[in-house]
């Protein structure tokens, strides 16, 4: 019994320990918990059948069986709660991916996500996209303008070769590694977030 409650707790502990890094899903632990829940449930149902059979014969029943039933039921609820908290905690981490990296995830980000979570990410991403495009007439990209603008142009250093970058007014800038440029903030914000550019603060 104790080992099983511990397993639920360990899941919750794990998700609390690293709130901003997605660990691989603990499939084995989940499977064990499901197995135990099934066992608990079966034991409970057996006892219920016993009690109702006993009840029909004598009215006082067996109080200790009731207690066991109750404890088992509470255990079931607790385990379910642990699992839900674990899954919800994972979704929170994944949600942050959407805000940090945009709607398309790279392979290494997806590595620790299950199929279900990837599906959820697509759903969430679509909902957020729908929300953002429903604001005003043309929509608003909430990932843009994340910092209060202090000046129109910022100095940026290129961290990795990107190639030609066409600005809004039609000028083409070659973003070669380690070169610095003076660009309009709104246009290079996305590249800064992707890690192509670095904002040089002097």
């Amino acid at each position: 019994m104790t080992s099983l409650a511990d397993q639920g707790l360990s899941l919750v502990k794990e998700i609390l320990r690293c709130p901003d890094y997605l660990q691989p899903m603990r499939e084995d632990a989940l499977r064990n918990i499901f197995e135990e829940m099934r066992a608990l449930n079966e034991a409970n149902q057996k006892d219920v059948r016993l009690i109702s059979a006993a009840d029909s014969e004598r009215s006082d029943g067996a109080p200790d069986v009731h207690v066991v039933l109750y404890v088992r039921h509470q255990l079931l609820l607790r385990l379910r709660r642990c699992i839900m908290a674990y899954l919800d905690g994972r979704l929170k981490v994944i949600r942050e991916f959407r805000w940090a990296f945009g709607p398309v995830l790279t392979k290494d980000l997806k590595a620790n996500m299950t199929d279900g979570e990837q599906k959820w990410f697509i759903d969430y991403s679509a909902s957020l996209g729908r929300y953002m495009s429903s604001i005003g007439e043309t929509g608003v990209d909430l990932l843009q303008h994340s910092k209060p603008p202090k000046s129109l142009y910022v100095e940026v250093r290129v961290l990795e070769d990107y190639g030609d970058f066409e600005t809004e007014d039609g000028q083409v800038v070659v973003l070669a590694k380690n070169s610095t440029h003076f660009l309009e903030r709104s246009q290079c914000e996305k590249l800064i977030r992707q890690g192509v550019l670095e904002h040089v603060v002097t």
């Binding site: 499901f34 839900m84 899954l87 979704l91 279900g116 979570e117 959820w120 679509a126 909902s127 729908r130």
Partner: peptide, 27 residues
């Protein structure tokens, strides 16, 4: 409100597919 509805539905779908469906029927 639409956004919340969408996300809650997706989340419950995910919960159901990954965990709830494996639990005893009563739960």
């Amino acid at each position: 409100r639409t956004f919340i509805d969408d996300v809650v539905n997706a989340t419950f779908k995910h919960f159901h597919a990954s965990a709830l469906s494996q639990m005893p029927t009563g739960m």
